[in-house]
Amino acid sequence: MSNAPNCILAQHCSLADGPKCTRLCGSYIAMHGFNGAGGRVGAANLPDEYRMVTIANSPARASQAAVYAKLDPYVATFARQFEEGPTERIKSLYLVSASPGTGKTTTAAAVTNEYITRHFIGSIQRNRQALDRPAYFLDVNAWQTLYNEFNRARVPDDVAEPAARQFYAQMQAAKTAPFVVLDDIGVREVTEGFRGDLHAIINHRATNGLITIYTSNVAIDELPQVFKEIEPRLVDRIRDMCIVLPFVGESKRGLRRSA
């Protein structure tokens, strides 16, 4: 039986559906690991339900046709990561809708998988070693939960210490990966400490010109209020580097998993 349905490289691979398309394929292992839950896709920290989503098969594609019409040429710009010398920067994206459940997270995951795929294939074509973690997905709400686990009063050390280590490991990955998703950055009820750590990630990435996909239920013009910025320098930096893509419609979570 072909392993193509389990491999994110299948749509680009001439061996897909052939006799060599098995779980022993070196490229499959590089992308998904020996058990299908590792490799570069696993290292990206994508939720399981999004690990095989692409721009072509995304369940949000039909309902967000205007967004996907722009994403098709956008992912083609990922080839710029291999260009030598001064080159036009790959833009970041700000995926926004007032309503949750319109496909923002699904779309962010699809773009992430496209980046991972193009990074791997492009590296192989140029006889380069592909990065072990070219992309990373940070669920900001889940990250805030980790923060709360070690910052509440009377938290036992055996609970607080692992949570703190995991929190800062995720923070470092989100700062440094070439491509990152910050999922749901419009969190409002946060402490100054957590807000400062989130700002540190965004500021580091903006300063270093790294690609960031933001998803939010908050319009980009409203971020200064969320970030408590009197002078919206950080938000201006986000806006300068981003293509804003508004999502339309109402939540479809009752019909399918499309956050």
Rank of each mutant, 00 (worst) to 15 (best):
N3V: 06
N3K: 11
C21R: 07
R23S: 06
C25H: 07
C25I: 06
G26N: 09
F34V: 07
G39E: 03
R40V: 01
G42Y: 08
G42W: 13
N45M: 09
L46T: 08
P47T: 11
Y50T: 07
R51F: 06
I55C: 12
A56W: 04
A62D: 10
S63I: 00
K70C: 10
P73K: 00
P73Y: 10
F78S: 05
A79F: 03
R80Q: 08
E84V: 12
E88I: 10
K91P: 02
L93T: 12
L93Q: 14
T106D: 00
E114P: 08
Y115Q: 11
Y115S: 09
I116K: 05
T117M: 07
N127S: 12
R128M: 06
Q129I: 12
L131C: 05
Y136C: 01
F137E: 00
F137R: 03
L138V: 13
V140T: 12
N141T: 11
N141Q: 13
A142V: 05
Q144G: 06
Y147V: 14
N148D: 06
N151P: 04
N151D: 11
A153Y: 15
D158L: 03
D158Q: 00
A160N: 12
Q166H: 15
Y168R: 11
Y168L: 06
F179C: 02
V181R: 06
D183T: 04
I185G: 13
G186C: 11
V187C: 07
R188S: 03
G196F: 13
G196D: 07
N203W: 04
H204K: 07
R205G: 09
A206S: 10
N208D: 10
L210I: 10
S216P: 08
N217M: 03
V218H: 03
V218A: 07
D221T: 11
L223A: 00
V226A: 05
V226W: 01
E229Y: 02
E231V: 15
D236L: 09
M241A: 15
L245F: 00
R256I: 14
A259E: 10
